[in-house]
Amino acid sequence: MPAPFNAFKQALKQGDTVFGCWLGLADTYSAELMGTAGFDWLVIDGEHAPNDLRSIMAQLQVLEASDSHPVVRVPVGETYLIKQMLDAGAQTLLVPMVDNADQARQLVRDVTYPPHGDRGVGYALTRAARFSQIADYGTTADDEICLLVQVESVKGLENLNAILAVDGIDGVFIGPADLAADMGYMGNALHPDVQDAIMTALHKIHAAGKAPGILSTHDDMTRDALEAGAQFVAVGADVLLLSHAAQALAGKWRDTLT
Rank of each mutant, 00 (worst) to 15 (best):
M1W: 05
M1L: 12
N6Q: 05
A7K: 14
F8Y: 13
F8K: 05
F8V: 08
F8H: 09
F8W: 08
T17S: 11
V18K: 15
W22D: 11
W22M: 14
L23H: 13
L23I: 03
A26F: 02
A26W: 00
T28S: 15
T28V: 13
S30D: 00
T36M: 12
T36R: 15
F39C: 08
W41F: 13
G46Q: 03
G46K: 07
L53D: 12
R54A: 13
S55F: 03
M57V: 02
A58Y: 02
L60W: 05
V62F: 11
E64I: 00
A65L: 13
A65H: 13
S66W: 09
S68N: 10
P70C: 08
V72A: 06
V72K: 04
R73K: 13
R73E: 12
V74A: 11
V74R: 06
G77L: 03
T79V: 02
Y80H: 12
Y80Q: 08
I82Y: 14
M85N: 07
L86S: 11
L86T: 08
D87M: 09
A90E: 09
T92N: 04
L94D: 06
M97V: 09
M97N: 13
D102E: 15
Q103F: 05
Q103C: 02
A104C: 05
V108M: 07
V108G: 07
R109M: 11
Y113C: 03
H116M: 12
G117S: 13
D118T: 15
R119N: 09
G120R: 05
G122C: 08
Y123V: 08
L125W: 04
T126A: 15
T126V: 03
A129T: 06
S132V: 03
T139C: 00
C146E: 03
C146Y: 01
V149F: 08
Q150A: 06
Q150V: 14
E152I: 07
V154C: 06
K155L: 13
G156Y: 03
E158D: 15
N159H: 14
V166T: 09
D167L: 00
G168R: 13
G171V: 10
G171P: 11
G175R: 00
A177M: 09
D178W: 04
A180M: 07
D182L: 05
M183H: 08
G184H: 07
Y185D: 07
N188I: 05
N188Q: 15
H191W: 09
V194Q: 04
D196Y: 00
D196N: 04
A197C: 01
T200C: 00
A201C: 04
H203M: 02
K204Q: 15
H206R: 15
G209Q: 07
A211S: 14
P212C: 01
G213Y: 00
I214A: 02
T217W: 00
D219N: 08
T222D: 04
T222Y: 01
D224L: 11
A225G: 03
G229E: 03
G229W: 05
A230G: 04
A230F: 01
Q231T: 08
Q231G: 11
V233Q: 10
G236N: 07
G236W: 01
A237N: 05
A237Y: 00
D238Q: 10
L240W: 02
L242R: 01
H244P: 00
G251A: 01
G251T: 02
R254M: 12
R254C: 08
